[in-house]
Design a protein around this nucleic acid. Structure first.
Length: 511
RNA sequence: GCCCCCAUCGUCUAGCCUGGCCUAGGACAUCGGCCCUUCAAGCCGGAAGCGCGGGUUCGAAUCCCGCUGGGGGCACCA
């Protein structure tokens, strides 16, 4: 390509970085809870870094002061930690390339913006937002794409003074001149070319002095010695702009990899419309970080054919950013939930205490724990989990299948009532059992089962004819854990009491 | 309107680079069965896909072109 008179300007990554220590970053902006898309790209950055035994940096991009808050910064860092994505340098742990919060790096942006202007690669623009807005609207009305006219490019001293006298405060714009195509050698997307004629003189510093994303990003990535940038492909179009800044400053750009955008079930970029999009939502629902990680790993990447469950070590060891697909995946909650179930079953066997904590949080959120948690409470939760067994795929399932273990009364599901409370003799059957139970000996699963089966024999009933209505009476549901185990855990008093309530309920409903 | 990307079961994907081993493999979801007091889990089985049209070739899911479809981006947001 060196022969064509306009040999493209290439930003390939040759030599140095392959011998340099890999340094990557995740750069969340604290304007909301951690989004699964950001968590996903952070995770791929992290995998790449741990695979290369590099350094992972967390940088807070809070230059948009109107939308950033401290609360969100805290929550984002927390969610990263919860996910098990840890960083070696960051606002909380420090490091040799700080500060790690953009609002604390203003002097650097100022310095390089000045440098850019000195090099005549950037200039002051005195146009007001209103003026620009009007031009943009006009261009749209004419059906064309808006591009800044460049009218402030070469202002004279007197024009400048006049604008200043009017009270205008300038922004800083990059000066984009015609030139060869800008080539991005992307580790995931492959080679992509951009013609500079499609770019206009974009703003890099606001009139209030704060830098914009494209500029702050370049300054920080360079100063922090970032070698690889893995980010969503909504940023691919920004890359040529950033490359131009690197070039203007005489810097070597990092290697880039643009991940496909995660889609919702309607094939549109994943957003709130599709339900839960914040890591926090999944955390609250009782998903496990290890399952979420495993699930993330399988979006746009498949380590091996015919396998989906991987340990963290395996993931780190197998990860190659070059093998990531550039096809947008759909966020499939059903598969995530299945995978969580796989991890949950394992966890219940290996570390039941963690499951107790998980369910405890869910129960607390649902207001079923009175706020006070004693060792007895935990033991009880552990027993419930034991009885529920592998029905628990996510923490919240303790509510779906076992809320009645934590409530005083029972709410009967309409379908359950229709199905099992409608026969005329149910009340009598429940009454029978109630009496047999009230005067029975030790109240444990085996004994209860014997009582029920004997009663069935005595009355000439199918066992199911007793079991099903009793289940509804005790739990309100048609589905759930084994009846005898459930009764044993509920205890004789509550069973008798719920049976009585059900009998009353049925009688008043039929009379 | 302009720029960029993508295209295998409903979904995540393997295969594509280095055409034949692909009557396209796995997983989730779904359907049927077994187990069973329900549900869940587990096991067994089924249905389900190379967007369309042209090439190239003895041979194309795999290579080329076009079309169609989908997505992302065009800010004093990130």
């Amino acid at each position: 390509m060196a022969d064509s008179g306009h040999s493209p300007f290439r930003f390939t990554i040759h030599d140095p970085r392959f011998t340099m220590k890999v340094r990557t970053r995740t750069a969340p902006s604290p304007t909301g809870y951690l989004h699964v898309g950001n968590a996903w790209s952070a995770f791929f950055n992290w995998l790449l870094t741990r695979n290369q035994r590099g350094v992972f940096v967390l940088r807070v991009e809070d230059t948009d002061r109107s939308r950033s808050t401290e609360e969100f910064e805290t929550s984002v860092l927390e969610d990263f930690k919860w996910l098990g994505i840890d960083w070696d340098e960051g606002p909380d742990v420090g490091g040799g390339y700080g500060p790690y919060r953009q609002t604390e790096r203003m002097h650097l942006y100022r310095q390089y913006a000045d440098e850019l202007r000195t090099r005549r690669a950037a200039y002051h623009c005195y146009c007001t937002p209103e003026e620009l807005d009007a031009e943009r609207k006009q261009a749209e009305a004419a059906g064309g794409a808006y591009r800044y006219s460049g009218r402030c490019r070469d202002l004279s001293e007197s024009q400048r003074a006049a604008f200043l006298a009017e009270g205008r405060v300038p922004t800083v714009r990059m000066r984009i001149d015609p030139g060869p195509p800008i080539v991005v050698d992307d580790l995931v997307q492959g080679r992509v070319e951009f013609g500079p004629e499609h770019l206009d003189d974009f703003i890099i510093v606001r009139s209030n002095g704060t830098p914009l994303y494209n500029f702050a990003n370049v300054v920080d990535d360079h100063l922090m010695a970032i070698t690889h940038i893995v980010r969503g492909s909504e940023h691919l179009n920004n890359t040529p702009r950033q490359l131009l800044i690197y070039q203007a400053l005489g810097w070597t750009p990092p290697q880039v990899a643009h991940l496909p955008v995660i889609l919702g079930t309607d094939r549109k970029k994943l957003s709130k419309r599709h339900g839960d999009t914040a890591v926090r939502d999944y955390r609250r629902a009782g998903y496990l970080p290890e399952a979420l990680r495993n699930f993330f790993a399988l979006m746009a990447w498949y380590p091996e054919e015919d396998r989906e469950i991987y340990s963290m070590q395996e993931l780190i060891q197998k990860f190659r950013i070059q093998d990531v697909n550039n096809v947008s995946p759909t966020f499939d909650v059903a598969k995530l939930t299945w995978m969580n179930g796989v991890y949950m079953r394992d966890l219940i066997a290996r570390d039941p205490d963690r499951v107790v904590t998980l369910c405890q949080d869910v129960l607390n959120d649902a207001g079923l724990l009175d706020g006070r948690v004693t060792p007895e409470t935990r033991t009880y939760i552990a027993r419930v989990i034991d009885v529920l067994g592998d029905r628990i795929k996510i923490g919240r399932d303790i509510l779906a299948y076992g809320d009645f273990f934590f409530t005083d009364g029972v709410t009967y599901e309409p379908d359950a009532v229709k199905k099992y409370f409608s026969r005329k003799d149910v009340a009598a059957t429940l009454g029978q059992l109630r009496d047999r139970i009230a005067r029975a000996g030790p109240f444990e699963a085996g004994a209860v089962e014997t009582i029920v089966r004997e009663m069935a024999t005595d009355l000439g009933l199918q066992t199911g004819e007793i079991i099903h209505p009793v289940r509804v009476a005790l739990t309100g549901k048609t589905a759930g854990p084994g009846l005898f185990e459930l009764m044993a855990l509920l205890g004789r008093d509550r069973v008798v009491q719920r049976l009585d309530s059900a009998i009353d309920w049925i009688r008043s409903a039929t009379s």
